[in-house]
């Protein structure tokens, strides 16, 4: 299990260092359009002669950055809601959880479409869409865990010793439900990544010419036959990252409890 943080740190380090070694991701080179991989361009060039490797790295920073930001935002909010709902006994908590249940059943794409209509396609609309429902799985998970945790004997013991309810929640319960929530966050990161790149693929998120994996797939689809690497590189990047996050999440939830 200790290897995962190291691997993540290494990946982040690579993303920071690589841009200094690769050409600029947005500068075209009309003499090398759709060139196959070579020493100068390790993953080839795209329809404007831009370096695909550089764009993949630039896209990684945007795609992953947006996904991480969305997971953090929705995670904090969702867990807070879940804790609150789990701790409160009245109908208030029930309504909160039911609202989360219902919103969770709505497709994120619906919010993507609505946000694109109201705000116009772009990064703000993308974030709104991802966050609108993204908090609900966290809330449901945190609620379940909180209910289970507050039912345990030690909680009654702590309360008997004179601790306030809020303190119990903040200190004891949070500490015990944190590990499964971190595992959950990894799984959410994978699905958020797919949503971010999916909305950008549809033109509802990150706009060209900014490098983003989904947008790169959309731009490159035309060249599927002429230069398959233009589509393959961002596709593989999306799939591998999502798979890695899923595996990590499952390991954490399986072995880390």
């Amino acid at each position: 299990m200790r290897r995962w943080p190291v691997a993540c740190a290494a990946a982040a380090g690579v993303l920071v260092v690589l841009p200094f070694l690769l050409p600029h991701p947005d500068v075209p080179d009309f003499a090398a359009i759709l060139a196959p991989p070579s020493a100068a361009h390790p993953l080839g060039t795209d329809q404007l002669g831009r370096d695909v490797a550089a764009r993949m790295v630039a896209g990684a920073r945007l795609t992953l950055g947006l996904s991480v930001a969305a997971v953090l935002l929705t995670g904090l909010f969702g867990v807070a809601v879940g804790l609150l709902a789990g701790a409160s006994k009245g109908p208030f908590g029930a309504v909160l959880v039911r609202t989360a249940d219902l919103l969770a059943a709505l497709p994120t794409v619906l919010f993507g479409l609505l946000a694109a209509v109201v705000l116009g396609p772009g990064v703000p609309a993308l974030l709104v869409a991802v966050c609108a429902v993204g908090w609900t799985p966290f809330a449901r998970q945190a609620h379940l865990l909180t209910v289970r945790e507050t039912g345990r004997e030690y909680v009654e013991g702590v309360v008997a010793l004179g601790a306030t309810r809020a303190r119990v929640l903040a200190v004891h319960v949070s500490r015990n439900i944190a590990p499964p929530l971190v595992a959950h966050a990894c799984l959410r990161f994978a699905s958020t990544l797919l949503t971010v790149s999916g909305l950008s693929f549809l033109g509802l998120g990150v706009q060209p010419p900014t490098a983003e994996w989904g947008a790169m797939v959309a731009e490159g689809r035309e060249y599927l036959f002429a230069a398959p690497h233009v589509v393959l590189v961002p596709s593989v990047a999306v799939v591998l990252t999502a798979a890695a996050a899923t595996v990590l999440g499952r390991r954490l939830s399986g072995g880390g409890g």
């Binding site: 009309f30 404007l48 396609p121 035309e222």
Partner: peptide
């Protein structure tokens, strides 16, 4: 605008 896919490409170039 992005409605015609060639526009962002041309604008970048």
């Amino acid at each position: 605008f992005p409605n015609r896919p060639e526009m962002p490409v041309l604008a970048t170039a």
